[in-house]
Amino acid sequence: MKTEKEKMLSGENYFSNDKELSLDRNKAKKLLHKLNITEYLMNGNARNILKELLPNTHKRIYIEPPFHCDYGYNIQLGEMVYFNVNCVVLDA
């Protein structure tokens, strides 16, 4: 039987309050808080946060905080991507 995360990733109906998915969203929220509140400028610390939040993206991206997403790991970006202020990516 598939996990709720596997169902989500394959585009099937899934239970979003599943423990694993809730933990993943909470991790993303904590990283987003660091990016959007603590750092707020694109510097070395912000880039380290983005590496953890967006592991499937190229390292040469630029995001103007605040930025919002559900999980982060579902986002795939190529090189030289720019997200302007208040970008929201629903990556469920």
Rank of each mutant, 00 (worst) to 15 (best):
M1R: 15
K2L: 14
K2E: 14
T3D: 12
T3E: 07
T3Q: 08
T3N: 09
T3L: 06
E6R: 02
K7E: 05
K7C: 08
M8Y: 06
L9S: 03
S10R: 12
Y14F: 11
Y14C: 06
S16H: 11
S16K: 09
S16P: 07
N17K: 15
D18C: 06
K19I: 15
E20F: 13
L21F: 10
L21T: 05
L21Y: 09
S22L: 14
L23T: 15
D24G: 04
K27A: 14
K27W: 10
K27C: 13
A28Y: 07
K29M: 08
K29H: 10
K30P: 08
L32C: 01
K34Y: 09
I37C: 10
T38E: 15
Y40C: 11
M42W: 12
G44M: 08
N45L: 13
A46D: 07
R47S: 11
R47Q: 13
N48K: 11
N48V: 00
L54N: 04
P55N: 08
P55Q: 10
N56R: 10
T57F: 04
H58G: 11
K59N: 15
R60S: 13
Y62I: 06
P65D: 05
P65W: 10
P65C: 08
P66I: 02
P66R: 03
F67L: 00
F67R: 00
H68G: 02
H68D: 13
C69L: 01
C69S: 05
D70N: 08
D70W: 03
G72D: 01
Y73L: 08
Y73M: 12
I75S: 07
I75N: 02
Q76C: 14
Q76P: 05
L77P: 00
G78D: 04
E79P: 06
E79Q: 14
M80L: 14
V81A: 15
Y82W: 12
Y82I: 09
F83C: 09
F83T: 01
N84M: 01
N84E: 07
N86V: 08
C87I: 02
C87K: 10
V88T: 11
V89C: 02
V89T: 02
V89I: 07
V89E: 03
V89W: 04
